[in-house]
């Protein structure tokens, strides 16, 4: 298991190199001249040329990549072209904001998705099953932006139960520590602010959770149904185990592998792709950060940002793979 983990970590290297080349290449193929953008439309050609030189954009692509890669190896993600600040420093709080939102959403999605799936499979073809799967189908089909707007209209505007956007009430001043506001408020021991942070988290988290929840519920259901037909489940029943143990111990563990795969994929996707939700709820996350950077043709931010998001995605999937081996002793990676 340890050897496998180490080997998988080594195998990350070519993947990361490949990703850095691809992001670098794609970003440089985007039409538009960043030097022109930075200089402004009314700038003289000389000024544009100066900026181009300053940023190293006049060099051939492979030299540009070389210096970029060299920086990456030293842990330097480069500087933003627009703000001139180091990207590594700048992106941190945005990543934390996204991570907080995504973890909250995934918690909701996994908890409700898995349990809905289990109950549906356990009561297959009952009215509960039908309505749960109907909800799941609607969940997959609802566009996130529409759901987000409806939530704001109902819970924020009409009922005034929850705030409609942002991470905290603007009147609250807080010096962030981890940039996970829920954790920060706990560290400060301020329950009132904690409650405010949680309230701000609910609507976007629910909007973001809907699609993954629906997918997880459907996968859990079908996977559970398949396992429930197997012989060892009959053995478990023949032992006199209660239905709860049969379902939650014997069936769920066996059914969990496809579910984990989906959870891993969704988690990775959401970490980089929560742009819509972040925009609707004015959530200062990494999706919006990158979206803004693309609009400003901030090459360095876009390529490093995409690289970070992609790396997180790859690492999450590696973790999922390792969990497989931990769950199923038959999976002996690499042993032939």
């Amino acid at each position: 298991m340890l050897a496998y983990t180490v080997r998988r970590l080594f195998m990350l290297i070519p993947v990361l190199v490949g990703m850095s080349i691809i992001t670098f290449g794609i970003v440089h193929m985007i039409p538009g001249d960043p030097a022109q953008t930075i200089a402004g439309e009314k700038a003289t050609p000389q000024r544009v040329e100066e900026i181009r030189k300053e940023l190293g954009l006049d060099e051939p692509l492979y030299i540009q990549y070389g210096s970029y890669a060299k920086g990456l190896l030293q842990g330097d993600l480069g500087k933003s072209m627009t703000t001139k600040r180091p990207i590594g420093e700048e992106i941190g709080p945005f990543l934390a904001a996204t991570a907080e939102l995504v973890f909250a959403a995934m918690f909701i999605a996994v908890f409700f998705g898995v349990n809905l799936g289990i109950l549906s499979s356990w009561r297959q073809n009952s009215w509960f099953d039908y309505s749960a799967m109907m909800i799941a189908l609607i969940g997959v089909s609802i566009p996130v932006f529409w759901l987000g707007l409806m939530e704001q209209w109902l819970f924020a505007q009409t009922l005034d139960w929850l705030p409609s956007n942002g991470r905290l009430d603007p009147r609250i001043q807080m010096e962030p520590i981890t940039y996970f506001y829920v954790i920060d408020t706990i560290l400060y021991g301020d329950t009132e602010v904690l409650w405010d942070a949680v309230k701000h988290l609910i609507l976007p988290a629910v909007a973001l959770a809907t699609v993954p929840m629906a997918i997880i519920a459907r996968i859990t259901r079908s996977s559970m149904l398949e396992v429930m037909r197997s012989d060892y489940i009959r053995t478990a029943r023949a032992k006199g185990l209660s239905e709860f143990w049969v379902v939650y111990k014997h069936t769920l563990k066996n059914a969990s592998i496809p579910v984990l795969t989906v959870i891993g994929l969704q988690l990775g996707t959401l970490l980089g792709g929560a742009v819509l939700t972040e925009t609707i709820f004015s959530w200062p996350g990494v999706g919006r950060y990158l979206y803004t950077a693309i609009g400003e043709r901030d090459y360095t931010v876009v390529q490093s940002g995409i690289l970070i998001v992609a790396t997180i995605f790859v690492i999450i999937n590696l973790i999922v793979d390792l969990i497989y081996a931990w769950i199923d002793p038959r999976i002996q990676y690499g042993k032939k």
Partner: peptide, 18 residues
């Protein structure tokens, strides 16, 4: 499992693999 117990045809699949 206590007063009546049962064994099945397929020993390969009758035990939980995990």
């Amino acid at each position: 499992g206590k007063d009546i117990s049962m064994i099945f045809q397929e020993p390969m699949t009758s035990l939980n693999p995990l």
